[in-house]
């Protein structure tokens, strides 16, 4: 989906804040991901055009950062830390059990991540970048299910608050 007029205006506003337009690349990629649930090829081309870059450069930058997904991954990204403080507090087991639990659920993407700077909550999990911890496997499933049911309101797949126009999980 290409930029709508409103989106283009918003994008141009973002660009205008920076002394140099290319600095708006990451914010625009976030914006595109908020909208589509991942960074689509079309969005990369739109952004390239807006910033006067080639799509190759946009892809080059986009593919460097782990938060940007370039294929659909579902509405909920569950990030489980397994770095050392979580490792010694059960992170690996947590990720294994969640992976198994949601293996067939297209809505939920479970990924093992590096330290998310919340080691006092180890083992820690983020659901669309909202922190939860310490969690047992059961508690984690409970939280994820609450997001699925809407009892908890999830952020976007890029961690932005859900606002009009962005893709509600």
């Amino acid at each position: 989906m290409s930029f709508s007029d409103t989106e283009r205006r918003r994008a141009e506003e973002i660009v205008a804040r920076y002394p140099h337009s290319k600095s708006a690349l990451l914010p625009l990629l976030h914006m595109a991901q908020d909208r589509d649930g991942y960074v689509t090829g079309e969005a990369m081309k739109d952004i390239a055009e807006l910033l006067g870059l080639t799509p190759a450069l946009v892809l080059g930058t986009c593919s460097f950062y782990t938060m940007f997904k370039r294929a659909p991954i579902g509405n909920l990204v569950v990030s489980v830390c397994t770095n050392v403080s979580c490792l010694v507090n059960g992170g690996p087991a947590l990720v294994d059990s969640l992976r198994a639990r949601y293996a067939d659920d297209e809505d939920v993407h479970v990924e093992e991540v590096e330290c998310v700077a919340a080691c006092d909550l180890a083992p820690v999990m983020q659901v669309n970048y909202e922190f939860h911890g310490p969690v047992t496997s059961e508690a984690a499933v409970d939280v994820i299910e609450q997001y699925k049911s809407g009892a908890l309101v999830a952020r976007t797949i890029s961690g932005s608050p859900v606002i009009a126009g962005s893709k509600a999980p």
Binding site: G41, T54, P55, A56, L59, G60, S63, F64
Partner: peptide
């Protein structure tokens, strides 16, 4: 003509073009 760039990161860095460009 920056039609090629590095993609990915670290050990999986590779030279890329945009798929249809």
């Amino acid at each position: 003509d920056p039609l090629i760039d590095f993609g990915g990161r670290g050990g999986t860095t590779e030279v890329i073009t945009y798929p249809d460009e």
